[in-house]
């Protein structure tokens, strides 16, 4: 093979790679935090069939789970301006991430809430816990504990999916890779290195979610 692999250019672009990495992490953190929040709200609305949110959430979840993230992104970034809603690229990217993850986490958290044994709720009532306390400590927290691994996987999947945000010129990691390879024509090396960065990031996020789960959900006894 005549081609010589050359990874020597990577340190020269360290700053740009770091910028892209930070952008991707930012998208993931914002999308993850707000998306899971939406998911909790959605799961409650769906479970107790709060009008009109229960039904709205059902349509929202089905719509976002059955269309590609890329098309959602295009619809938000290119389509919404004709309705008078103009978003710059990072706003569109975050909105798409939030809505996408929100739809998936609604379903995941709902499954967790549904798995609460009825006896637990009866026990909480007999201990004179208020409805709010019952929900928070007897339903929501154990539910989150149960589905946390699934939720973590979904956050990782969404993070990996954020690579298509490069297509609306959000300056995340893949955008940076595209830019670099268009300058030095080392397409394979650039993409290979970027892929490795995503792989590392996926491991890190998994670990971070495990820590968050341990501190936010499992520990901290009833106050």
């Amino acid at each position: 093979m005549a081609y010589q692999f050359d990874f020597a250019f990577i340190p020269d672009y360290a700053g740009m790679f770091a910028h892209g990495l930070a952008y991707t992490v930012g998208l993931t953190v914002a999308g993850g935090a707000i998306g899971i929040g939406i998911g909790i709200g959605g799961a409650i609305s769906r479970l107790w069939n709060l009008r009109p949110f229960g039904n709205l959430y059902r349509y929202y979840v089905e719509l976002f789970r059955n269309t590609p993230f890329l098309v959602q992104l295009f619809l938000i970034f290119f389509g919404l301006p004709s309705l008078g809603i103009k978003l710059v690229e990072w706003q569109a990217a975050i909105l798409a991430m939030v809505l996408n993850l929100g739809a998936y986490s609604t379903e995941i958290i709902r499954a967790g809430l549904q798995a609460t044994p009825p006896g637990q709720i009866e026990a909480a009532e007999s201990l004179a816990l208020t409805r709010w306390q019952t929900f928070l400590y007897v339903m929501l927290r154990p539910a989150l504990r149960k589905v946390w691994p699934a939720l973590s996987s979904q956050v990782v999947i969404t993070m990996l999916g954020s690579s298509v945000c490069s297509q609306i010129s959000a300056e995340e990691l893949t955008f940076v890779a595209n830019f670099i390879q268009s300058r030095n024509f080392r397409a394979f090396e650039t993409y290979f290195f970027t892929t490795a960065m995503y792989f590392g990031l996926a491991l890190l996020i998994r670990q971070a979610m495990r820590l968050i789960g341990r501190h936010l959900i499992v520990r901290r006894p009833l106050s």
Binding site: M1, T174, F188, Y191, T195, Y198
Partner: peptide, 21 residues
């Protein structure tokens, strides 16, 4: 490898990588 990396990057690496050969 395939679960931990973005599909887009897999496609890019294949698309540009195999042309090198």
């Amino acid at each position: 490898l395939f679960q931990g990396t973005p599909l887009l990057l897999q496609l890019f690496t294949l698309f540009f990588g195999l042309s090198l050969f």
